[in-house]
Design a protein around this nucleic acid. Structure first.
Length: 372
RNA sequence: GCGUCAUUGGUGAAGUGGUUAACACGCUAGUUUGUGGCACUAGUAUGCGUGAGUUCGAUUCUCACAUGGCGCC
C-alpha cells in the first residue's frame, strides 16, 4: 500500500480542503503540519513526545542520512521507522533543498546532478536524481520526494526557466529508478513567483503522474510573502483534486493559513523546533521570546489553554530560567509546545473548514496573533 | 609598622597625555520558513578608587589618602 489521498470536501468560500491520507501507518486528517526530523530525530524529542503532539507524518532528510549513518546502515537496521523507532508515516526530503544551501555556485549544478563537498569531511560528492531516489528507497520512508533544484529567491526568470526544465528532467529520471512498492513518490513544482513558469512546471509535472505534488522553492532566502502566495496561486489550479498538495518548508502560522486558503494540504517547517532552541514560543497572541526579562517571575504556562506537556506542567519563569542558563530541557519543552501549537492550529482549521467558516477562523486567529 | 605592586562597566580585563575607552562574558532587545554549522544582528562605562597638583588638555604624569595582594620585621 502507498499513501493515498481522499478529498472529503472543499470549503465553499475558499479553496481550503479537508481530506484524509491513508498511509502504511494509519489514516490521518489534512490539513496537516509535519514536524521536521532531519537526521532521523525531531531535534531533542523522542518519538513518544512527537506523537503526544498528535503528529502524523514526520520529515527526515535524505542528504543527511546519506552522509551519516548511510542508507545501507539504516537498511541493515530494518529501515528508517525501525531505526528511529517512529511507527508513523515518514516523508523524506530528496536533498533538493541542500542543493540550494550547499552548492557554492551555479557551476556545481550540472545536468547530471549536483557536485558539492561534504560538510563533514570535505569529500567531493555527487548527488543525482537517481541516487536520491535509490537512497530514499533504501531508507524505506512512506513518501519520497523527487530530486529538484530549489533556486534562491533572487533567481531571474531566465535562470528559473532553465532550472524548471532541468527539474522536470530530473523528476523523470528519478521516477524511472523508483522501485519501492511501499513508498509513494511526489513531484515538485518550481518556477519562483512567475505565473508562466509555475503553470508550465505544474502541468508538466502532473503529466508524469506522481502520487502527490508539492510546491517548492518558497520561503527561501528572504523571499517576500507575496511571492510565496503567488507561487501557490499560480501552481494549485494545475494540480489534480485527488492528490495531496504539499507546500515545502512552510511555515509560520500566517503562512499555513494562507496556504490552506489557497488549497494546500500539508506543510513542514523547522521553525517550531529551531525557534524553541533559541528560546521563543508561538502563542495565540503572537510569538514570545522567553529570553525577555519580563518572564523572570511569570508563573503562567506558555499558554493557559494549551494541552501540551509543557503548558500543563511548567511555568514561563522556569522555562526562561532553563533557556537563560542553557539547559537543553528548555528547548525541549518549547519544541513540544511549538509543534503542538502548529498541529493544534491545523486541527482548528479542519473544524473551521468543516463548518465552512475558514475565513472567519483565519481572521479571528490573525487579529489576535498579530495584535500583540 | 616598613617596603612593594595594584585599583578601569554587572564580571574578566586591554589601553592611551588630546576626536566616539579595545575585546570577551553577562545583560537588553530583535532575527530564524523542504535545519551542514545551532547560531546571527543590534544596543549596553558622559567614565578609568578618593582628593589635590602639573599641563592648553589627564583615565594616562606627581603627591596624599583609602582599599586589596605580596614580602619583611
Amino acid at each position: 500500500m502507498i499513501v493515498k489521498y481522499n478529498l472529503i470536501k472543499t470549503e465553499k468560500n475558499t479553496k481550503a480542503r479537508l481530506g484524509k491520507i491513508e498511509t502504511n501507518y494509519g489514516t490521518f486528517d489534512t490539513p496537516m503540519f509535519m514536524p521536521v526530523g532531519t537526521r532521523g530525530t525531531v531535534k531533542s524529542l523522542n518519538p513518544e513526545e512527537v506523537k503526544a503532539c498528535h503528529s502524523g507524518i514526520v520529515l527526515a532528510n535524505t542528504y543527511h542520512l546519506w552522509l551519516r549513518p548511510g542508507e545501507d546502515i539504516v537498511d541493515l537496521c530494518g529501515g528508517l521507522h525501525k531505526f528511529m523507532n517512529y511507527d508513523g508515516p515518514i516523508l523524506t526530503d530528496s536533498g533538493g533543498y541542500q542543493v540550494f544551501s550547499l552548492a557554492k555556485n551555479k557551476k556545481d549544478i550540472t545536468e547530471e546532478g549536483v557536485n558539492f563537498k561534504s560538510h563533514i569531511d570535505g569529500k567531493k560528492l555527487l548527488l543525482t536524481p537517481e541516487k536520491s531516489i535509490e537512497i530514499q528507497n533504501k531508507l524505506d520512508s512512506d513518501i519520497a520526494m523527487s530530486f529538484d533544484e530549489c533556486p534562491p529567491a533572487s533567481a531571474t526568470h531566465e535562470y528559473l526557466e532553465n532550472s524548471v526544465k532541468r527539474t522536470l528532467r530530473w523528476a523523470e529520471r528519478g521516477k524511472k529508478v523508483h522501485n519501492n512498492p511501499r513508498q509513494a513518490l511526489f513531484g515538485i513544482v518550481q518556477g519562483g513567483p512567475y505565473e508562466d513558469l509555475r503553470k508550465y512546471s505544474a502541468i508538466e509535472t502532473v503529466k508524469m503522474n506522481f502520487d502527490g505534488y508539492s510546491i517548492g522553492g518558497v520561503a527561501n532566502d528572504g523571499e517576500s510573502k507575496e511571492d510565496m502566495y503567488k507561487a501557490i496561486d499560480y501552481s494549485v489550479p494545475y494540480l489534480p483534486e485527488d492528490k495531496l498538495r504539499y507546500l515545502m518548508g512552510v511555515g509560520e502560522p500566517v503562512d499555513i493559513l494562507e496556504g490552506v486558503e489557497r488549497g494546500v494540504d500539508i506543510f513542514d517547517c523547522v521553525l517550531p523546533t529551531r525557534i524553541a532552541r533559541h528560546g521563543q514560543a508561538f502563542t495565540r497572541d503572537g510569538k514570545i521570546n522567553l529570553n525577555n526579562a519580563k518572564y523572570k517571575t511569570d508563573l503562567d504556562p506558555i499558554e493557559k489553554d494549551c494541552d501540551c506537556y509543557c503548558c500543563k506542567n511548567y511555568t514561563r519563569a522556569y522555562i526562561r530560567h532553563l533557556i537563560s542558563v542553557g539547559e537543553t530541557l528548555g528547548g525541549r519543552l518549547l519544541s513540544i509546545h511549538n509543534i503542538r501549537f502548529l498541529i493544534r492550529l491545523t486541527e482548528e482549521i479542519r473544524e473551521a473548514i468543516e463548518k465552512d467558516s475558514f475565513l472567519e477562523y483565519k481572521k479571528e486567529f490573525l487579529d489576535r496573533y498579530e495584535k500583540r
